[in-house]
Design a protein around this nucleic acid. Structure first.
Lengths: 261, 261
DNA sequence: CTTAAAGTTCCATTTTTTGGAACTTGAGTT
DNA sequence: AACTCAAGTTCCAAAAAATGGAACTTTAAG
C-alpha cells in the first residue's frame, strides 16, 4: 500500500459535513494504526497538502489544494464556458443553476449558482446523485450509444421515485427523446419536489462532457418560463458546441418539445 | 525522498499558465528521471489525484482535488464571510474585490470578484505578491507586533517601486498608521497603475487571518468613492471581527484618515 | 492531583521507491 | 512502407521509506 493511496484516502475523508480530521478520525474511518495516522497527517502537512487548524490537532485541506483544485476549471475550460451560460440564466430568472459532470453512473456538481428565490434548490458542490434519475444525468447519458448505457448498468438499477425510469428500457426510451428534443427534464426524481432542465455539451479535443442545468421547485415555474429556460440553455450549449466542434451535441428541437408536451 | 513530496511537487507545477503536465514537463521542471516521472503521473492518476486529458498523455488536476480544494472555503469559514462582504462591495461599485491570505512574506488571493468596469484589475487566484508592497499585505502585517514583522524580513527587502516601502523602518511606520486608521492603502506598488484599499480580520479560534481588498485603476476613483469603499470594508470587517471575537482587529478611524489625507 | 483518552516516538521487518538502461510507441519523413 | 527521432514505458537490484505493535508523552476532564 503506497503512501500516496493513503494520502488520497485521507483527502476523500473530507466532505461537506467533515471539514477537518484528527488522528482518531482516521483510525476509525480508514482502520489504520494510530501510529500511521499520526505520521501520515504530519507528513501531509509538512508537504503542504494539509494545514493544522490554529493550534489544535485538527487538519484541514491546504491552500495549495484550494488553488490546484481551482485550476480544474481552467484546465477543463469547457466548464468555465458552461458556467458562464448557466450563471447568466440563473442571474436572469433567479433559479439555481449547475454545471455537472458524470463519473460512471453518478453525477457531480462542479459549479453552482444559488439563485435568489426564497424557495431555493440547494445541492452542495461535490454531492453525488444517480445519473439515470436526474435530468443532468440523462442529458449526459444521451450522448452515449444505447449499448454503452446498458454496459454502465449491468445489474440494472432501483428507481428512487415514481417519475424516474424504472428499468433500462424505460431509461433508453427517455434518452431517445432527449436526443430528439435536445434537452432533458426531471421532476420529483433524485430530489423530491424539484424540477430540472438540462442540456449536455462536450469537447472532443479533451473528451470532457458537462451538463448545464437549471433547477427550481416543481410548482413555481410557468410554461412560458420553462420554454424560455430551455431555449436559453439550448442556445448557450449550441454556442459552446460550435466552439468545440462537438459532433455529439443534440441541438434543441422545440417543434418536437412543444407538440409533445 | 517520499513519493508524497514528489506528488506535491507535481501539484505545485500547475499554475494559471500551466493547466496540464506531461512526463517531459516533469523531467525539465523537477529534474527527475523519466522513469520516475512516468510512474509518478500514472500512480497519481490511478489514485485519483490527476486525470488524463482525453486520450492524450497530458495530466491535469482531478475532480477530487477540485472538490477537496473547494472545502477549504468552508473549513476556513472566515474566508466565506469575508468573501460575502467583498462580493457585495464589488457588485455595488463595479471594481475588483479580493480576499487574500498571507503565507510568510507573500500574499495569495483566495477568492476574486472581477468587477464590471472596462478598465479592470485582474489578478489570478493563486498568484503571489510580496506582502510588504501591497495594501493587502500591510493590512495583514499590521496585525503582528513590530518584532515579528522584523523577524519575517531578516535580510530586508527590495522595493519594487517608488511608492512602496524601501526598508523595514519605513514599513513599520506605515504599519503603525494602518493600525491607527484601520485600513491600508497602496498605489503603484506591486502592480503598477493599480490602487487598492484593504482591511484585515482574523478568527482567534482557528488562527486564520484574511484581508478584504478592493482594487481599481489608480486614476478612476473619486475621493468620495474612496471613502465609501473604506467605510464599507471597515464595517464589513468589523462585523466579522465581532462574530469571531477578534481581539487584534483594528477598527476604522475615519477621523484620522480624513485629517491625514 | 489523578485518570483516561488522544497523540507521538521507537525500532526491526517488510514494502516501496529509485535511476539507469533497454524497450515500445507514435508522429512526421523520405 | 520503412525509417527516424523524440516521448513514454518497463525492468531490475540497490537504497530508502512505510509498517504496526508497544512504550511513551501530552492534553482534557474530574
Amino acid at each position: 500500500m503506497s503512501i500516496l493511496s493513503l494520502a488520497v484516502d485521507v483527502l476523500r475523508c473530507f466532505s461537506s459535513t467533515r471539514h477537518d480530521v484528527t488522528v482518531t478520525d482516521l483510525v476509525t474511518l480508514l482502520g489504520m494504526p494510530k501510529s500511521n495516522a499520526s505520521r501520515l497527517l504530519r507528513a501531509m502537512r509538512d508537504e503542504g497538502l494539509l494545514e493544522t487548524v490554529g493550534e489544535s490537532k485538527r487538519y484541514r485541506p491546504s491552500l495549495l489544494l484550494n488553488q490546484v483544485g481551482h485550476l480544474y476549471r481552467f484546465a477543463a475550460s469547457l466548464i468555465d464556458r458552461a458556467d458562464a451560460v448557466v450563471g447568466g440564466i440563473s442571474d436572469r430568472i433567479g433559479h439555481t443553476g449547475y454545471v455537472s459532470v458524470r463519473r460512471g453512473t453518478e453525477i457531480v456538481a462542479v459549479t453552482a449558482h444559488p439563485g435568489r428565490h426564497a424557495l431555493r434548490v440547494v445541492t452542495s458542490i461535490g454531492d453525488r446523485i444517480p445519473a439515470f434519475a436526474s435530468s443532468t444525468g440523462r442529458a449526459l447519458l444521451a450522448r452515449l450509444p444505447d449499448d454503452e448505457v446498458r454496459a454502465l448498468y449491468p445489474a440494472g438499477f432501483t428507481s428512487p421515485s415514481e417519475t424516474a425510469p424504472h428499468d433500462i428500457d424505460e431509461l433508453l426510451g427517455r434518452l431517445a427523446r432527449v436526443r430528439d428534443e435536445g434537452f432533458a427534464e426531471s421532476r420529483d426524481e433524485a430530489v423530491r419536489g424539484v424540477r430540472a432542465l438540462s442540456v449536455a455539451v462536450g469537447d472532443p479535443t479533451t473528451g470532457d462532457e458537462v451538463a448545464l442545468c437549471l433547477s427550481f421547485p416543481a410548482a413555481t415555474v410557468e410554461p412560458a418560463e420553462r420554454l424560455s429556460i430551455i431555449r436559453s440553455l439550448g442556445e448557450g450549449a449550441a454556442e459552446i458546441a460550435n466552439l468545440t466542434k462537438d459532433k455529439r451535441f443534440h441541438p434543441l428541437n422545440l417543434a418536437i418539445a412543444e407538440t409533445a408536451s
